[in-house]
Design a protein around this nucleic acid. Sequence first.
DNA 1: TTGTACGCGTTATCAG
DNA 2: CTGATAACGCGTACAA
Lengths: 339, 339
Amino acid sequence: MRRTTIKDVAREAGVSVSTVTYALKKKGKITKASHKRVWEAVERLNYVPDATARSLVGGKTNSVGIIMPPSLGFDFSDPHILQMLAEVSSTLSRKGYWMSLYMPEKMEDDFMRQFLMDAKIDGLIWMVYRPSDAMVRVLECRNLPGVAITYGKNLELNTSAVVMDDGAGIEKAMDYLYSLGHRKILFIARDDQTEDRRLQAYRRRTQELGCEYCQVIGGHFSEQMTIAQLSWFWRVAQERPTAILAANDTMALAAIKALTQWGVRVPDEVSVMGFDNIPAAGQSIPALTTMGQPVSEMIALACDHIFSAMEQEERSRELLTVEGKLIIRQSTAPVEEHL
Amino acid sequence: MRRTTIKDVAREAGVSVSTVTYALKKKGKITKASHKRVWEAVERLNYVPDATARSLVGGKTNSVGIIMPPSLGFDFSDPHILQMLAEVSSTLSRKGYWMSLYMPEKMEDDFMRQFLMDAKIDGLIWMVYRPSDAMVRVLECRNLPGVAITYGKNLELNTSAVVMDDGAGIEKAMDYLYSLGHRKILFIARDDQTEDRRLQAYRRRTQELGCEYCQVIGGHFSEQMTIAQLSWFWRVAQERPTAILAANDTMALAAIKALTQWGVRVPDEVSVMGFDNIPAAGQSIPALTTMGQPVSEMIALACDHIFSAMEQEERSRELLTVEGKLIIRQSTAPVEEHL
DNA sequence: TTGTACGCGTTATCAG
DNA sequence: CTGATAACGCGTACAA
């Protein structure tokens, strides 16, 4: 059983196809009578215009692709990611676009190229640290605009991007702790990220602020690992820090948990600060001071960029940077109170 | 700048369009020479076939729609949902399909109808409790197959569905606790779900098992609320339960936390059991015994159903039910030990 | 106001 | 082996 086409409707209504189109689009001028007959025929036949055909003639698909690997080199927590997707979805649909989501298991997957070639999209948002040149090329062949949501300044970008400068965020965090009087700040780094801008930023800023104390432990992502590392450090350290800055909230929360368990009061004895502002950060005791990633803002920027790019013929390579937001809660305090 | 089409390639290679198609599809027989010239032209012009045109002539879009409201009447936790999406995505792409994800803010949204009409899809998976008749109608007009992933038996279904019978799951959980000797089982219900099959199942099974004790408290979703309710109950209850069954893991975990804090040993004094098997359930202390939703299985079933339905012309309405899986961990113990 | 005819980019059929 | 040509379903100039 074939699908009902516009011709069927025309025949049923006793008019021509263009009359049907006009009646449906409310364009041009049509007699009341024709209009009515067309709509009746549409109802009778349950006609729904074919989306693919419209796309072909219209030259646009009305959808935007999203590429997001489940194992992101990416620091948004799961709840965040889901919320991000929801935000993207509604932002897109408000403008009449739909979302074509692709979550490759691994980035080097051949499927990705397949997707890039096969997907019926007018633009693409990369949720990856840095898309590979080959993939970007495919997009260029199709003359489609793309924008990456990522972080880390001074990235050698091959595409437009919205980047959060997390190095600057760490520096900002250090400055904040410094302003509270802290001079001995311990950094908990992610030890699975070889090139860790956050760690580098910590080292740099420590030096720039003239702090002698520059101690780093690897926290790993899991709570247990972080606690184990911190516990070890706490035992062997010659000098204990007055503040702890973690490269992400998960590790900061683990630190708070551990310290509290050991009877070390946070923030009275030690201030603890995180990074990312995951949802759990606001609910810990004490609530975690952290550097928030302006996720919604980044998404809005990316969507805006794609929207305007899709309306233009020429492709530009734009770089939009956003700043981390300092979110002060209860896990940090002036160092004076420690005395 | 127009996109390069197959005609451009043909001209560049000095052959006809059909020869190009043959060369690209490796079908039919072509001379080495032609093959080479075509591929060179393709490389030179960066030709990528237009997906929309292929879909039009081929009669299929190679993508599957997913409708998933962020506020699901749905009990999968966030990490689960993300994992579900990833699973859907890879299952689809393994079969050469892509995922068109739509997350409406509210289900009664007009955008949804728009999506259903506009989306270039060959089938749809509903991640909703029950799709509205009107929406199902749109799908039918397009002659597209659809399948809902949902739960609750005896649903008046208007579409194919994979359902997890959570009423039966609760009964199974009750039977398990009963088999451990528990006769006084407290139920923590979700108090934001007016029609709660889980609660009803608890009441029914309690009676069927001949337990006199039938106590329910409303746990709400948040940890705090659950703890508050439980704390209140613990104070005023004439008779305390030997086991607690919660309508979801989040509340069960909250219960464990609270009990432990009060010095009540789990499971020695009170057994605690959850529902859903969220990731955190395996990591609590003690690890939570729970009734797992076979999420992956449900997804696989739904995808399989859609795959086969998309290959057929006729639409059928199938109902696939799955059972909850009892996952025994450390939070439950025989009642004898309590003595 | 309405109908005809062409084009969108492919694939598939059928001659040559 | 290769080249015209007809679909696919719709939108839209252009003609009537």
